[in-house]
């Protein structure tokens, strides 16, 4: 009898350990590797709502709360970080954003974001352009830009 009990206990322990590992790896997978960043001194409070951030990157919302212009910077469509930012942070597909920008640009109803070629260029632009917003890899510890968390 005691043998059987210990066997069950052992199994239970194993399952608990397994589920802990699963939970941990699950949360690892869900964790974002990209973060929204703005120029220091931009009139926006963190955290920002996802809807507002989407409006900014869809180029629908074009001014900050003080009336100054929002300057949106992005990486190329096929850059993995662009894809991560769209899917993880904005919860949109990259092709949806591209279609939204094309509609604005080729119908005279708006402008597209400025496309930069590297994260280094992104960092420089955000650090040096008032009103700028973009995104950077999360692990990048950079004091030149302000991180914008999403609700």
């Amino acid at each position: 009898m005691p043998k059987i009990i210990s066997c069950y206990t052992y199994r239970f322990r194993n399952m608990a350990l397994l589920s802990l590992i699963l939970l941990f790896s699950g949360s690892m997978m869900a964790e974002e590797n990209v973060v929204a960043v703005v120029h220091y001194g931009t009139p926006v409070t963190t955290p920002i709502s996802r809807i507002r951030l989407s409006s900014i990157f869809s180029m629908r919302l074009t001014t900050w709360s003080d009336g100054s212009a929002i300057k949106v910077f992005v990486l190329p469509d096929d850059n993995p970080l662009n894809s991560s930012f769209c899917k993880q942070i904005l919860k949109l597909f990259p092709h949806q954003l591209r279609y939204a920008w094309d509609r604005l640009v080729y119908s005279g109803t708006g402008q597209a974001p400025v496309i930069l070629s590297s994260t280094q260029e992104m960092e420089n632009k955000i650090a040096n352009t008032p009103g700028a917003i973009g995104y950077l890899p999360k692990e990048k510890k950079d004091d030149n830009v302000a991180i914008l968390l999403v609700e």
């Binding site: 001014t63 212009a69 640009v105 080729y106 708006g110």
Partner: peptide, 18 residues
Amino acid sequence: LGINGSWYATPNLRLSMQ
């Protein structure tokens, strides 16, 4: 064939032509 230009004269006023 098409070419267009767009200019934000102020944050609220934009001029566009194609």
